[in-house]
Computed example of a mutant assay.
Amino acid sequence: MQRFDLRELWLPVAAMIGYALITWPVWQWLWFEWMSNEYYSHGLLIAPVALFLAIQRVRNDPQLRLRFANREGAGLLLLGATLALYLYALQQRAYYLAAFAMIGMLAGAVWTLAGAAALRRLAFPIGYLALMVPLPILDRITLPLALFTGYCSGALVQFLGLDVTITGNAVTLPNAELVIGAQCSGVNSLISLVALLTLVAYLLEGSVGARILLTALALPLALLGNILRVAALLFVARAWGAEAGFTFYHDYSGVLFFLAMVALTLPLTRALRFGSLRPEVI
């Protein structure tokens, strides 16, 4: 049986050190975004999860470990192209583009050092890193989502008998006037659910169609949870006033409704006929 030569490690180690040094400015930017951007506070967990999945994939696949001694020059094309894009984006201070480029650089490095077969086996851990990158487009969709949430929540509470008037994102109750702002758009729940359901779809045994469907369900689940949360907030504001709704209930209800949507993952995985954990991730 072919054995792995530890002397072959010097090039991967040198590549990792060089990669860390080159991409350090983007990691600093990502850290700042994770700490200050409520939409991407989950990004702090993505890289450790991806690293764990990659380690488990390598540990459980002896052939994959051996392939790290195989070099494929074709990977240099991807590595070179993404490195050029990274340097350009960094020079333009387009950090989110630089972050995507550095993920591409990682894929190119794996391809170069271990071959296309290894890259295919590590495609999910590498691709999963894309979910840690903050997107500037989010600022453009928060208001439309907030308006949609306000309309649906208002229609729901009206159906349930609450006296409420909705004009745009302004909500008028008999005892209070409220504004459905960006914080009620549900974008943070949507992004977190996408990351979570994508991970669940990878970890469990199941068909490709079931994996895609489970990930796609993040959008309706996030919207449903947010609409129910805002509707409940309107009932609280009607009963105890706007201050009670926005100073106490608003701050804690988001977590509760998010956990409720997460709890739906179990029956969803059963309905989609998912099995146990995949052997390569245990």
Rank of each mutant, 00 (worst) to 15 (best):
L259D: 02
N70Y: 14
Y202R: 13
R273F: 10
L256I: 04
G80E: 05
A239F: 12
F52T: 06
S253K: 03
A232H: 04
P174V: 06
G108L: 04
L11Q: 03
V13I: 15
V200L: 15
L131S: 12
T215L: 13
A237G: 09
A123N: 10
A47Q: 02
L233Y: 11
G161L: 00
A242P: 12
V200F: 15
S189I: 00
T142M: 12
L143E: 14
P279A: 03
I212R: 13
N188A: 12
E177F: 07
V49E: 09
V133R: 05
L77V: 10
Q63P: 10
A201E: 10
V179C: 03
L204K: 07
N175Y: 05
C152H: 03
Q91D: 10
R140Q: 15
Q183G: 15
L256A: 13
W240T: 01
M1G: 11
L30E: 02
I17L: 15
F235E: 12
L30N: 04
T172Y: 07
R211W: 04
A210W: 10
Y86S: 00
F248I: 14
L221I: 08
V255T: 13
F100L: 15
W10I: 12
E72H: 08
V157Q: 09
L217F: 08
F32M: 10
T165W: 12
T269N: 08
F52C: 01
M261A: 10
L228I: 13
A117R: 08
A116F: 08
A260N: 00
S276A: 14
Y202F: 14
P25K: 00
S276D: 14
Y88G: 01
P279W: 01
N226M: 06
A237I: 01
L87H: 04
R270V: 07
L6H: 12
A271H: 11
Y86W: 00
M132A: 14
L178G: 03
R65W: 06
L214S: 00
S153Y: 10
G275P: 08
R67C: 05
G150K: 02
G209F: 13
A81T: 14
Q92E: 15
A176I: 12
L178V: 06
P125A: 06
L272G: 11
P25Q: 00
A14P: 11
L219M: 12
M261I: 03
T112H: 05
L145N: 02
G73P: 01
T112Q: 04
R71I: 10
T247D: 15
I212E: 07
D163Y: 03
A116L: 11
V281G: 05
T265N: 11
G104I: 08
A101Q: 12
S253Q: 02
G241R: 03
L119N: 08
I166W: 07
F159V: 02
Q91C: 01
Y202L: 14
I166E: 07
Q28K: 01
S192I: 05
Y40K: 11
V255D: 06
G186V: 02
A216S: 14
L156T: 08
L160V: 05
